[in-house]
Write a protein that binds this DNA or RNA. Structure first.
Lengths: 192, 192
DNA sequence: CAGCCTAATGCTAAGAAATTGCGTCTGGCC
DNA sequence: GGCCAGACGCAATTTCTTAGCATTAGGCTG
């Protein structure tokens, strides 16, 4: 249903998908997310509503696909010279992006309209890839590197939990504390 | 909008709310959650659809209210004789309930249709209250007790993150490992 | 390169749901 | 016992959703 592959990469299907996604992004900025409807998006994209319903099923699934695209990192994590500095920089940026109004909306849209959790898993994979890149770079410097699973448990999960369930419990110093906790027990690997 | 207090506890408003909530629960079991619509629920509850729209705004907000009620613990945490045993028992039960298909649906419904995050915060408060009760009991035994904030970060958050974003990454041994990690660093208190 | 064949899209209409305005009634409060 | 604010029922309008059918695009084979 969601995140479907494009069977014909260069064909009309791909153009329709791109056009519809772009229409969602445009209209999100123009009329606001809550005013989005399938007929509105379809008209803007130059397709008929039935096409959208057939391809995505419903509005939630379409928004989930668009949202997860927006959560994709657009650049590799910055190189600040050390594992700790890289992790702190990445965590601060991650927390800022995800806790913003737009970020929270994208996360919730991703989680919703996605019964198979495919988009949610992609969202987590993005973070894992970034952390993995930071780890590889630190290992190249000869530093001891915590497991990606550990970082997801100790840094990403608490951040996400607070963003989704306790929006008032986020502070600036908190992210640094999470990174410190992760580095302090880098030898522990809860694993899967 | 959601989780509104009942202005007239014994009056018609209270009866309508109870009736609508019950209709949601009944129909969820009968026709499935995805088949729920406001007119369907309203008819079953013996009210008109406009009443539901006025009280809850839309279907998502109504489902959010019902879902958070279902996530409320129905009993204090079991007393297994020690902090570690209590925590392990509670964590296992929590993980089982939340990772089930129904549990995940309730969580997602709670997060949705709730722009102010009030219901999501209540959901987190439920877990915090349970953990607090376990801690108070353990303190009564003279045991050293980890901070509730620490438990939320180290135990609850990783579980929730995996349930929502990485449903394949949950295992039985994992919950025990989380509890062990929490007890191993009970002196650390990341706090808020 | 020409023709076929699958699959995706456009179109239309019917059915269902969402939204709003207005009148009525309940129930708390003087 | 009467007043008043809030909540509800009713009904009409608008919008969304879904299904059937015709058409077209584009890949594929010969």
């Amino acid at each position: 249903m969601s995140a479907q592959a494009t069977p014909r990469p260069g064909g009309r299907s791909a153009r329709v998908q791109q056009s519809v996604h772009q229409a969602v992004r445009d209209l999100e900025a123009e009329v606001g997310r809550d005013a989005l409807t399938v007929p509105l998006i379809a008209t803007r994209a130059g397709v008929t509503p039935s096409t959208v319903y057939r391809r995505w099923g419903d509005l939630r699934a379409l928004l989930s696909d668009v949202a997860v695209e927006r959560l994709r990192p657009d650049a590799p994590p910055a190189d600040c010279g050390s594992l700790r500095a890289d992790l702190e920089a990445w965590t601060v940026q991650f927390a800022e992006e995800m806790s913003s109004t737009a970020g929270r909306t994208y996360i919730r849209d991703t989680l919703l309209g996605d019964p198979e959790q495919g988009n949610a898993a992609r969202c987590s994979d993005y973070a894992a890839e970034q952390l993995k890149a930071i780890g590889v770079r630190a290992a190249g410097r000869g530093e001891a590197v915590p497991d990606v699973e550990t970082l997801l448990d100790v840094v990403v999960a608490p951040l996400m939990y607070r963003i989704l369930f306790r929006p008032s419990a986020l502070s600036e110093a908190y992210t640094a504390r999470l990174v410190a906790a992760a580095l302090g027990r880098s030898e522990l690997s809860p694993g899967a």
